[in-house]
């Protein structure tokens, strides 16, 4: 039993990492007033680009950089569609998702079952030697530490810096931000691309550290879980960590149950994270709606 708990907590931290990256990215975009349903696609773009780069260079660090770049580039398409062309955010995000799914499946086909140098494990000296705790929290790859350090960093930037203020202002009232001398379009571009970069890192963790392989569609709905998590987290980076850990733990539990040969249909287990998503939306979606940035889903109309 204790072994199961140990595995679920440790596995939850690892499995929660890509979800956390994607959720933080989506928090940034949505706080600037842009919903990016294409985050699923940006994760795939990151996972695929990162894997291909690593496969050719055998350098996972270059792979991570490529993943970030690919995620950012994919989201740039979304930013262009919704900010510049004022396309419908939902439609653009979904289209981007399917586009990325198609492109990565095609480009990634020769790399299925290719072996790569994974992102190395990085035991934190000293801390990792603490019994139990050390193994759980301080023996992960660099991307895991990065995700959990990024959350407070993003919170600080959003809350206490002028950039965060400007970004939140755009997400609340773009007209007010414009009148205050800010450029809502530029800020929204930056936010969506930053969110895409984080989604790309989510993909990098999936293909370069977590699964260490490329499978088409390997993001497996994590992008959509991230979009839902943003709502549970009420657009707050720190609460995103809690949500990502819960979902990570569910993924880990699912693996453990399968590994231990419990007689539960794997199809049912596959559903659990998404059932949890629905349950969460049911519980939180109604009562916490007020926390939503005011301008979300309505792109700044501009001046004529």
């Amino acid at each position: 039993m204790l072994g199961l708990l140990y595995a679920v907590v440790g596995g939850g931290i690892r499995a929660g990492t890509p979800i956390l990256y994607a959720t933080l990215g989506e928090v940034i975009a949505e706080r600037a007033g842009i919903v990016n349903l294409g985050v699923e696609g940006a994760i795939l773009a990151g996972a695929c680009a990162g894997f291909i780069t690593t496969a050719h260079t055998q350098n996972p660090w270059l792979g991570i950089a490529a993943a970030a770049l690919a995620g950012g580039a994919a989201s740039l398409v979304h930013a262009f569609m919704v900010v510049t062309l004022r396309a419908n955010q939902i439609a653009s995000g979904l289209a981007l998702m399917f586009l990325c799914l198609g492109v990565t499946s095609f480009v990634g086909r020769p790399y299925v079952a290719v072996k790569i140098n994974a992102v190395p494990q990085l035991a934190i000296p000293g801390l990792s030697d603490i019994p139990v705790v050390g193994g759980l929290f301080f023996q992960h790859d660099a991307l895991v530490y990065g995700a959990y350090l990024l959350a407070p960093l993003i919170w600080i930037v959003l809350t206490f810096t002028k950039w965060g203020l400007a970004l939140r202002a755009v997400g609340e009232r773009p007209d007010v931000a414009f009148a205050a001398g800010l450029s809502p379009a530029a800020i929204q571009y930056a936010a969506v691309v930053a969110g895409g970069i984080l989604a790309g890192l989510a993909g990098a963790h999936l293909s370069l550290a977590y699964a260490r392989s490329w499978v088409e569609g390997m993001s497996n709905g994590r992008g959509f879980i991230a979009v839902a998590l943003v709502i549970f987290a009420t657009w707050h980076p720190l609460r995103s960590v809690v949500g990502a850990l819960v979902f990570g733990a569910v993924f880990a539990l699912q693996l453990q149950i399968q590994a231990r040969g419990v007689a539960l249909s794997p199809y049912f287990l596959d559903m659990t994270p998404y059932l949890l998503t629905l349950a969460g939306l049911l519980l939180w979606g109604r009562t916490r709606r007020y926390a939503m940035p005011e301008a979300l889903k309505s792109v700044f109309e501009g001046v004529t």
Partner: peptide, 15 residues
Amino acid sequence: MLIPAFSVAENIALA
């Protein structure tokens, strides 16, 4: 031209 969800200080800071 104020942001209702922001505090007075945050609204001032924007300016």
